[in-house]
Structures are given as structure tokens and as C-alpha cells.
Design a protein around this nucleic acid. Structure first.
Length: 1155
RNA sequence: GGUCGUGUAGCUCAGUUGGUUAGAGCGCGUCGCUGAUAACGACGAGGUCGCAAGUUCGAAUCUUGCUACGACCA
């Protein structure tokens, strides 16, 4: 152990880099796994990040949390593998590559060539990999990077294929339509993100159209009045929607001699627009309209299909189209309360069609009417407008319905409408595309049941955001008309249109009449560098065709789509092992996960995709071999809050400013702090690697763990990260450094312990000078008790995934260790006799505290705890003794009930409170602590702890610098007693009388009540003639210091100071002042702490001379002066320093006599 | 517009089944300590617990409405 002690200036980041090297050289992570081999598994799933962007601070948070619990569980004895993973497919990768190539559209990609494009995508994925790996390592996230699963790898893709084939074979994978935002001119769909970029304010027609009712008997001379802002969709009308509980009116319009049906609430509005009276003839609920037929404004489809009916699932028949249907989304906010439905051109409309289809028997429901081609022009099905771009057809369509009399009212309407972000004159339209779906709705109830079994943190996610999302489940639109993704493993027969699903590459190769593998083979031959995994990707996989099992002579070829990359990540629990083609054992041992964690944005992403896939594949009713009880695939899930950046904004000009600016850079206005989203563009955060260099990974980790529960939104505050150092890390380090300083001086060596093990309380007992805990001082017993309490608290919190609570316990322990135990034990460490039992007690106690503390804190701050552990155990290793090589190879401490003393904890707390109040009283009386006082009187309300406190008077004397401490219960001269009711107990008893009881207490004499309680154990109080009996339980006694005393009061205690100063006390104060001045000089002269000195004090003050004489031993002892010589001022040497003590002038001369 | 969440000290956050003096850390101010010393201690200022109504003897806590902010969805 270093005899110099540790320099208080400690460079955390530098030390962390050394620790990383130590871990690497000694393979500590692997060793931590090896020692748990065969133990109970704790399963962790890594949610794969996308590596084709730079990591940002939010990723540090997820990675820190993902590290904390596996480290903890490993120390607790579990075997916890941590396999890294990377999400590599998807549109963002394609976009990145397109940017590089300077191209945009799918046509551009086709022109560039799908093959080179895919190859570029594969390479692009790894672009930022090095940065990711560096961050992962530097943060101390222990995860197997070299065994990472990668979603584009062949084995991964084949696992995904296996799962899709399972779904296909169970009729859970089907082809349908999906309404998407379509750029007709470009012939491509836009993602939600792209659509969001292109909104513009436009004026569109807003039209009210009459749909004549067919039931002339019930609705004579009547029309349903519907509203639409897209006249071009009118030829495609299939339904009209109303809401069952809205009230509708039949109004008579005299001008056209016709009845109109629409929402009653809107009659006035529409009459206002028409500028004429409308007479309400009758009203009815929407439910009465449902099922009624009408004639649509155009008859292109109606004339052939108008009378078609289909069989209903519930029995009976119904007309397929042109009926009034129920829809919850109908409102009376605008329009007419009756909505035109063209399912091909609106997502909501399409859902309505799907709901209608479900009412009919399979294949007997309404077909989708879509007379618009992908280029956005009308087809020949509507001859009047064929070839016309739909948006340009609005006007002729309006003319047509005006002529037919269907148009009732027309206005202009201003709203936001999406345009293509690449061609901002091109409006987007909603348009149906064929797409593959997973029938997740069949599993809605199972997913909900599965969800109930998951432990969500925070718990409101379960039935809140996530539960609601599951409740409103719609089938998963799986396919993407893109290039870089897992190819949909479905081959289609060219003759019959029937499908076949393939579960792996080998299975494909077995197909009869297979051709097309040569495309991959020749590509590989031309470029041997080509990654083997690409052969299961486009375009190579698309080249493979085989003989159709459905028709002689026909060929099977793959559908062109790839799949949603969320499916990839959701398949990770089995696909990471290549299951079931390989890795069966691993999968079965590692499913489900005990713990996963990601940020809130994954609710509809990874949290859902995993749950959905797993529920469909591994539930109790599935064809797959592996069946698992709920919950799966994860049991505990911490949903992290989003991380926000800290910025500033000028209150005057509202311009953004940097977070540390005080004044606006432009208008000099005041800058206030404001949290905002992290943004690469605004550069409003410091990159993680700079944080590591400045403050270290421990500081960042501690900030994340200890400043807030992980699910609140977390502000990435550099100031707060920086403050982790003095608040926790440095304080812990200072205690350690104090220990080494004196252990070095005294030659204390813990390696005398013979049963080394993990340096627990039991194993330390064999150490030289180690005494049983009951032989040690109260203070030692107390801190060991606090230590064990902390162990219990931290363990309990961590088992409940409460890192915040655990961190607070740790912080509190470091605080009491530093600010009470070490502070109050200092004189024992300074004792001269190195074999003094009390001194050795102090060493063993502090050593045990430190060794246990670093183990407790190791999962949180793995670097600094490792360093301290290394230093604490160095002497063992020097001897070749067996102690764990790393703190991370230790077992987590286990709390000992025997060592926890609840009474002692409470009493020490009381003692600290008394000390604190004493200091407060000194402050009030302006009596500095260096000035000794003759005594304090401590007034207590009960004798419960008095005897104990009396035995600790010494401690208070030192802390408060007083000669005497007396405790008393009876102190009428100092205090008044106030007795207040215990509301919690009395409330339920007296009920409504409570306010009067409270008043009666206020009027009563507290002293008298207290006297009665002390004498008889009970008293009573009269309220409204009723006598209420009270025991001491029912009241709370408060003390109030009387005026005129230097006193401070707390809840149950008052501390009163004796303030009169005798000359002797003043002289003692002077002596203490002198000691301080000498110590300052020792330090100024750079003396070693153990240097002994000769001290010459020159003064002409008789008072001071007397003070020195009286306190000679004290002064010499404190300043390590072998000789103390007093001289007159005139006798001072030239190098003497002139100072004052009170009004006395002194000159000090110091010189070292021995070291 | 819908769903979910959050509004407590200048800042970041605690606040257990409702109990009458609402806490902590940081920051700020004052004072102190001085052989852990760029550490540390004490004290102080600072709160109508977002607003309003209700339930109750009693509400930061329970209920309802409103409001602001955030996220997701539309």
C-alpha cells in the first residue's frame, strides 16, 4: 500500500482508461461469466441499435441501464450472457446510400442497378461501427461485441423465414390492400416521415352532395346529404357513414322541393351557408339510418353491381355496397354528419370496408372499387374521365354532379395537404397497394394476456400506452416495396397465382427444377470479397425459380417485396441463435428474457414486434415445438424516458442560445434555460466521447442512475454530470484516500487475514488486531450497522429494478461514512500507538466499509470501484494470497441481521441532530466553534435514549467544543412545552370533533398535561362536555426554547448553550486559534504530515503567554512540536510570520527537527 | 382531435395506505471548520404543491373539470 497516501487530485477519465486496459489484459468480463457457469441463468436481450448513424447521449443511457442490471445479477450469482446485436436493414440505410450516390427514387435505384446498390447498403451498415464499439467499451458496457447477431446474416434471415413460413402455413400471412400515401408522378409510396415533411396549405373544394334514398316509403322524396373535400373520389363511392348515436334531422328545402337528411346540430350552420330557411320535419337517431340504401352520384359501378348481395356471417343477405353504415369516426364538428366513403382513397374509409368484409361470408363481401391507375389517372372504368389526373378531374366531376342535380352546395376550403417533398408541386394521394399482412388481430386477446404478465416499469405502460396500443391492434402490414431488407420468403405460381413459403435456403435448393443460383455464383466468382450473406438478399434470391407444385409446366418465382425491419428485430429472441436451423440449445436456455430495456419510442417498435411475434410462435396453441407460459419474450422491461438537451433561449428576442450563456449574443437580453430535443443540426449537446474525456464514464453513469428514476425524461445536463464527481465519486475516493494515508503511516496491513476469500466481515476476523464487533466502540458498531442496512436497502431496490432508490442509499452511506464516521474517528487514526486496539478497530472497520462499499457500488460505477478494490487488496496479491482479482469477480455483499442495530441507528441519528442543533445555537449566539464553552444542556422529551446519550457525551463535547454536556427532561427554565394531538390516531376516534379537539389542545397547559401523562400515563381533555381520555400515544410533545437563551430546537430536543466566557475559556480559545495558525504555517512550509517541529511563539501579550502556558501540552500535541518556546516580539527572527489572535499580535517561527 | 404521461423551492427531483411544521441534492447568501483541505460543517432566504370544484374532521396525496408541457397516434 502506498505510504504517501493518494493525491486528492484524482483524474477520473485517465484512471478509467487504465482500468479498461486492466480488464482487457485480464479478460475480466469473461472471467466474471466463467465463475457463474452452470448457475441459474439471468437472461438479457440486447435490442439491436442501428449502427448506420453516430451514437448519441440517449444511447449511453440505454447502454448504461443495460449494463447495470446484468452486472448486478452476475455478482448476485446468476449466469448472464450478453450478446450484442445490430439492426441492419431498412429504409434509413437505403436513404443513406442514396445520399452517397446522389439519387432519390426507386427508378434511380433500378437504373443504378439493384446489385451494386445492395452491396453498398451492406457496406454502409458498418460505417459507424467503430464509433459504436468504442462508445460501448468506454462506457463500461460489458457485452459480447465479437459474437453480435446481425440481422442481415444468412442464419438470421433464415430464422426469420422459418417464422414467416410458420405463419403462412397457419394462414396468418395474407395478401391484402394497404392504403398508403402515394406519389403518383413518381410511382412510389412515401413513408410517414417523408409525408410529414411536405405539408402545404391549399384551397380545395368543399362540397355537399345529395345521395337519394331508395326506400321511398320511409323516406319519400329524400336524400342523405354528405360532405366531401375530394370530389374526385365520388365515382368510387361505396358507402355513406353515419354515427348511431348522433341525432339526424329530415329537413324540407322548399327551394328545391326536396327533403334532406343530415345531423340536426348542423341544420343552422347549413341553412346559414344557403342563406335560406330549412324546416325540420322530423328527427331520428343515426341507428335508424343504418342499412338504408341510396343511389350514388355516379353509376359506373352501380349500374352493374347495384343489386348485388352477399351472404352474411350471421345469416341472411345484404346488398354489398351503397348502403348507410355505422362509423365511430363521424362527428358533427364540420360537414353534415354523413360521410362519403371511397375505401380505395382513404385509410379510414378502407378500414370501414375491411369491417364490412368481416360481416360477410368469405369471398362474398364487397370488392374494393379503384378506377384509378398507379399513375394517378382515371382508368377506362370511368369513361367520362379516363386518362385524367385525379386532382384535375375535380372540376369536371363537379360540373357533372351539378348537371345531374346531386350537387347541393359548394364552397372553398383551406387546409393542410401533403405534397411530395421531392417535387413540391405534386400532391400526394392516398392509394391502395397490394401488401402482405400478418393477422395479428387473431392474437389480440393472447397478446393482451401476455402483456398482463409482463412487469413494466413504469407500470402505467402496461395498461396505458402499450395496453391501449394492443387493444386497437390492426393487422401488421409486413411487406415493403424496397430493396435492402429480409426478402419475403414467398414464391408465386405464374399460372395459378398460388403461393408457397420457404423456411430456409437449403429447403429452397431442394425444390424441383430449381434454377437461378448461378446469378449469385457468378457474382461471387467475379468478386470473391462479396459477403456470403448476400445470397439470401435481393437481387440474387429473386433469380431463383422452381417448378410449380400447383400446375404442370408452370414456374414459381419470388414475390418482389422485402419485409418491415421491425419484424427483424422482433424475431431477435430466436433469430439471434439462428433457431431452429441451429442454436436450439441456446435458444431454449435463453428464452424468455428476464430483462430488457429501451426508450419509450420502442413501445410500438421493438416492444411490440417482439411480443407479437413471440405470442404467435411460442404460445400454447402453436405448431412450434417450443411452448412457453406467459410472459414472453420478456419478463421485466424498463421503459426509459427520452433524453433532452439543455439549451438556452433569450427572453427578449427568443433566439436560441447556448445552455451556458447568460446574455443573448445578439440583443444582450437575459438567457433562460430551456430543455429541447436533441438535435444533430442544432448541435445542442456535447458528444459522449467528450464527456468521457472530461468527466469520465462513471460520472455519466452515476448521473443517469442516481438523479432520477430512469423512466422520467432525462436532461442531458453537462453541469449535472460534472457534479456527480464531488457528490459521490470524489467523496468515496476521499474516504478511501484518508484510509490509505493513515494506513500507510501506521503500516496497517489487512493481508494478515488468513482466510482471505472475499474480505467479508467473517473472513476479516482472522486479521491481526481484528476484534469482534461487540468489543468495538459505538461508532464502529454504528457504521457497520449502517453498512449492513445499506446492503439490505440496495439489494432490495436492485431486485425491484429500482436503481434510483439503490443509488440514493449508496449516496447516503457514503455521506455518513465520510461526514460522521471518519470525521468523528479522526483522532483514533492520529493516535501515536500503532498497536492501540481502538485504533486497529478503526482501521478494520473502515477497511470493511470500503471493501463492502466498492462491491456494492461496482455495478453502478465499475471503474472507480475497481481502482479502489485493486488498491485495497494489493498487499494480499503481493503475498500471493487469494483474493478476487477484480471487484467484478466478487459476490455481491449480503446483509447481516446480526450486524444491524436499529436502536443504535436511531440513537446516532438523534446524537447527530443534537450536534447539529448545538452548532446552530452557537451560530445564533455568534460564538465560533474554536471558542470553548463551559457547557450545553440538552433538553429531551423522553428518557428513552437519555442513558445512551449520556455515554456519548464525549463525542458531543468534541463536536461542539464544550466542557460539559448535561441531559435533562425537566427544564422549565429553558423551554415551554406544547402538546399537540396525534391526528393520525385521534382523527378516526373523534371524527368531526377533531377541529374542536385541536382547539382544546391549544388552550390547554402543555406542562400540566405532560406532567399528568408522565405521572399516570394518561390524561384527558374536555370537548363539548365530553371527556376524551388520552394516553401518551395520542399526543405529541413539542419543545420551544424560551427567550433569552442561546438555544436551538428540533422536533423532540432543545439544545441550550452556556454562553458566559471566563478568562480561562478565552485563553483556551486563544490556544486553539494558535494551533490553527501553526497548522496553516506547517502547510504553507510544505512540511510532511509526520514532521516534528520546533515552535517559537513571540508575543508581548501576557494573556496569550498565560494561554500558551496553560495549554502547552495541547498545543505541542496538535502541532507535533517537540519544543515550544515563548519569546517577546522583539526576539522574533526575520523569517517569522506576523499574525494576530484576537487583538494579540504574534510572530511564529517553525523549523523541522525530525521526520 | 385521441391516448398516455408530467406540472411540488431558482434548477433537478423525493414525498409510502389522506394526518396538520411538504423534504433532499445542487445553486445562492451568511457564518464556521482547517493534518481528507480545490474537501467539509452550520444556518438562512426561497413553496397559495399548475388552476378550480368536490369527497373528508383533515387533501400535495382521492374524484371531476380546466390549463400548460411532453411523447405517441391520427
Amino acid at each position: 500500500m502506498s505510504s504517501q497516501g493518494e493525491n486528492s487530485k484524482f483524474n477520473f477519465p485517465e484512471n478509467e482508461v487504465k482500468t479498461l486496459e486492466f480488464w482487457k489484459e485480464n479478460d475480466i468480463y469473461q472471467k466474471s461469466l466463467d465463475r457463474r457457469q452452470g448457475e441459474q441463468k439471468y437472461v438479457f436481450f440486447e435490442g439491436p441499435p442501428t449502427a448506420n448513424g453516430k451514437p448519441h447521449p440517449g444511447h449511453c443511457l440505454t447502454r448504461a441501464i443495460k449494463d447495470l442490471f446484468p452486472r448486478y445479477k452476475t455478482m448476485k450469482g446468476f449466469y448472464c450472457e450478453r450478446k450484442a446485436g445490430w439492426d441492419t436493414h431498412g429504409l434509413p440505410v437505403e436513404v443513406e446510400v442514396c445520399k452517397e450516390l446522389g439519387i432519390h427514387s426507386k427508378e434511380d435505384i433500378e437504373a443504378h442497378g439493384v446489385e451494386p446498390f445492395i452491396q453498398k447498403c451492406q457496406a454502409s451498415v458498418w460505417q459507424y461501427m467503430q464509433q459504436w464499439e468504442e462508445l460501448t467499451e468506454r462506457l463500461g458496457f460489458w457485452v459480447k461485441l465479437d459474437e453480435a447477431y446481425v440481422t442481415y446474416h444468412q442464419s438470421y434471415v433464415e430464422s426469420v423465414w422459418w417464422s414467416l413460413k410458420s405463419l403462412f402455413d397457419r394462414n396468418l400471412l395474407y395478401e391484402g390492400h394497404k392504403i398508403i400515401w402515394w406519389w403518383a408522378q413518381g410511382g412510389t409510396a412515401l413513408s410517414a416521415g417523408e409525408v410529414g415533411q411536405g405539408y402545404k396549405t391549399v384551397r380545395d373544394p368543399s362540397v355537399y352532395v345529395r345521395f337519394p334514398m331508395l326506400d321511398e316509403e320511409k323516406f319519400p322524396n329524400s336524400s342523405l346529404l354528405v360532405w366531401t373535400t375530394t370530389p374526385w373520389t365520388l365515382p368510387s363511392n361505396q358507402f355513406a357513414a353515419v354515427k348511431d348515436d348522433i341525432e339526424y334531422a329530415v329537413v324540407y328545402d322548399a327551394e328545391i322541393d326536396h327533403n334532406l337528411i343530415f345531423a340536426k346540430d348542423l341544420v343552422e350552420t347549413i341553412a346559414g351557408k344557403l342563406k335560406r330557411e330549412l324546416e325540420i320535419k322530423s328527427t331520428m337517431k343515426g341507428s335508424e339510418l343504418i342499412g338504408q340504401r341510396y343511389r350514388p352520384p355516379f353509376d359506373y359501378f352501380y349500374k352493374t353491381m347495384g343489386e348485388e348481395t352477399g351472404k352474411l356471417v350471421d345469416g341472411g343477405e345484404q346488398h354489398k355496397c351503397w348502403r348507410i353504415t355505422q362509423a365511430d369516426f363521424v362527428t358533427t364538428d364540420s360537414g353534415t354528419g354523413a360521410v362519403h366513403e371511397a375505401p380505395a382513397f382513404g385509410e379510414v374509409d378502407y378500414e370501414l370496408l375491411v369491417a364490412e368484409l368481416a360481416r360477410f361470408e368469405q369471398g362474398d363481401g364487397p370488392d374494393l372499387i379503384c378506377p384509378v391507375l398507379p399513375n394517378g389517372k382515371f382508368s377506362e372504368e370511368v369513361p367520362d374521365f379516363a386518362g385524367m389526373w385525379v386532382k384535375e378531374a375535380d372540376k369536371p366531376i363537379l360540373r357533372a354532379i351539378k348537371e345531374s342535380g346531386a350537387l347541393y352546395l359548394q364552397e372553398q376550403y383551406e387546409h393542410e395537404y401533403p405534397f411530395c417533398w421531392r417535387a413540391d408541386d405534386d400532391p400526394l394521394i392516398q392509394y391502395p397497394r397490394r401488401s402482405w399482412f400478418i393477422k395479428t388481430t387473431d392474437y389480440k386477446d393472447k397478446m393482451l394476456a401476455n402483456n398482463q404478465a409482463i412487469n413494466w416499469m413504469p407500470d402505467h405502460i402496461k395498461n396505458g400506452r402499450f395496453g391501449n396500443f394492443l387493444e386497437s391492434n390492426v393487422d401488421w402490414a409486413l411487406s415493403r416495396e424496397r430493396y435492402w431488407g429480409t426478402p419475403l420468403p414467398i414464391w408465386k405460381c405464374e399460372a395459378t397465382g398460388r403461393y408457397d413459403a420457404v423456411g430456409c435456403y437449403d429447403e429452397l435448393l431442394q425444390k424441383p427444377g430449381l434454377t437461378g443460383t448461378e446469378v449469385w455464383e457468378s457474382a461471387k466468382a467475379a468478386n470473391p470479397e462479396l459477403v456470403e450473406d448476400l445470397k439470401v438478399h435481393k437481387p440474387y434470391i429473386d433469380a431463383i425459380t422452381y417448378d410449380s407444385p400447383f400446375e404442370e409446366g408452370a414456374r414459381m418465382s419470388r414475390v418482389t417485396e422485402v419485409i418491415d425491419c421491425w419484424y427483424d428485430s422482433g424475431a431477435m429472441p430466436f433469430a439471434q441463435w439462428g433457431y431452429p436451423h441451429q442454436g436450439k440449445e441456446e435458444f431454449e436456455a435463453q428464452f424468455p428474457a428476464d430483462f430488457i430495456s429501451e426508450a419509450l419510442d420502442q413501445t410500438r417498435g421493438w416492444f411490440y414486434s417482439q411480443l407479437a411475434i413471440s405470442t404467435m410462435l411460442f404460445g400454447d396453441d402453436q405448431g412450434t415445438e417450443k411452448k412457453v407460459d406467459f410472459p414472453h419474450p420478456y419478463k421485466n422491461c424498463i421503459v426509459l424516458g427520452l433524453m433532452l438537451a439543455e439549451g438556452g433561449v433569450c427572453v427578449k428576442c427568443s433566439k436560441r442560445q447556448s445552455s451556458d450563456a447568460k446574455k443573448c449574443s445578439e440583443c444582450e437580453g437575459k438567457v433562460v434555460r430551456k430543455t429541447e430535443k436533441m438535435s444533430k443540426r442544432l448541435k445542442n449537446y456535447r458528444p459522449p466521447n467528450e464527456i468521457f474525456d472530461l468527466y469520465g464514464a462513471d460520472a455519466l453513469r452515476w448521473y443517469f442512475f442516481a438523479n432520477q428514476p430512469p423512466w422520467t425524461s432525462i436532461i442531458y445536463s453537462e453541469r449535472a454530470i460534472k457534479e456527480s464527481i464531488p457528490e459521490f465519486l470524489l467523496r468515496m475516493w476521499n474516504v478511501y484516500s484518508f484510509f490509505t494515508l493513515y494506513a500507510g503511516i501506521d503500516g496497517f496491513d489487512p493481508s494478515s487475514v488468513t482466510s482471505q476469500g472475499e474480505l467479508t466481515h467473517e473472513s476479516l476476523a482472522s486479521g491481526e488486531g481484528f476484534r469482534a464487533i461487540n468489543q468495538r466502540s459505538e461508532l464502529d458498531r454504528w457504521i457497520i450497522s449502517e453498512l449492513n442496512r445499506t446492503v439490505a436497502e440496495v439489494t432490495k431496490a436492485m431486485d425491484a429494478y429500482d436503481n434510483y432508490g439503490a443509488a440514493r442509499s449508496l449516496n447516503h452511506f457514503v455521506d455518513v461514512l465520510s461526514n460522521w464516521y471518519v470525521r468523528r474517528s479522526r483522532d483514533r487514526f492520529w493516535a501515536k500507538d500503532t498497536k492501540d486496539p481502538s485504533k486497529l478497530d478503526a482501521y478494520w472497520t473502515l477497511y470493511e466499509c470500503l471493501a463492502t462499499l466498492v462491491k456494492l457500488a461496482a455495478p453502478f460505477v465499475p471503474f472507480i470501484t475497481e481502482t479502489i478494490w485493486q488498491n485495497l487488496t494489493q498487499s494480499f496479491r503481493d503475498k500471493g494470497a487469494e483474493v478476487p482479482l477484480s471487484v467484478h469477480l466478487c459476490d455481491y455483499p449480503v446483509a447481516s441481521d446480526a450486524l444491524y442495530d436499529e436502536d443504535l441507528s436511531r440513537r446516532m441519528e438523534l446524537l447527530r441532530q443534537i450536534a447539529s442543533q448545538g452548532l446552530s445555537a452557537r451560530m445564533g449566539a455568534k460564538l465560533k466553534v474554536r471558542q470553548p464553552l463551559s457547557g450545553v444542556t440538552v433538553v429531551l422529551t423522553s428518557d428513552q435514549d437519555q442513558a445512551w446519550l449520556e455515554t456519548h457525551a464525549e463525542l458531543l463535547k468534541t463536536e461542539l467544543n464544550v466542557r460539559e454536556v448535561t441531559f435533562t427532561l425537566d427544564a422549565d427554565q429553558y423551554v415551554t412545552y406544547q402538546v399537540v394531538p396525534n391526528f393520525k390516531l385521534l382523527g378516526p376516534r373523534v371524527g368531526k370533533l377533531m377541529p374542536k379537539v385541536k382547539k382544546a389542545f391549544g388552550d390547554a397547559d402543555g406542562g400540566v398535561m405532560l406532567a399528568a401523562l408522565t405521572a399516570d400515563g394518561k390524561t384527558s381533555i374536555d370537548v363539548e362536555g365530553e371527556s376524551i381520555e388520552l394516553t401518551s400515544e395520542d399526543v405529541e410533545v413539542r419543545l420551544k426554547a424560551k427567550e433569552g437563551w442561546a438555544a436551538a430546537q428540533g422536533a423532540g430536543v432543545v439544545v441550550v448553550l452556556a454562553t458566559e466566557l471566563t478568562d480561562e475559556l478565552i485563553r483556551a480559545g486563544n490556544a486553539r486559534d494558535l494551533v490553527r495558525l501553526v497548522q496553516d504555517q506547517r502547510k504553507a512550509n510544505d512540511y510532511e504530515r509526520t514532521d516534528r517541529i520546533e515552535l517559537i511563539v513571540c508575543t508581548d501579550s501576557d494573556e496569550l503567554k498565560l494561554a500558551i502556558e496553560e495549554n502547552n501540552d495541547y498545543i505541542s500535541g496538535e502541532t507535533l512540536a517537540d519544543s515550544l518556546i515563548v519569546k517577546p516580539l522583539a526576539g522574533a527572527g526575520a523569517d517569522f510570520v506576523e499574525l494576530t489572535i484576537g487583538e494579540h499580535v504574534v510572530k511564529l517561527g517553525l523549523s523541522v527537527v525530525s521526520s
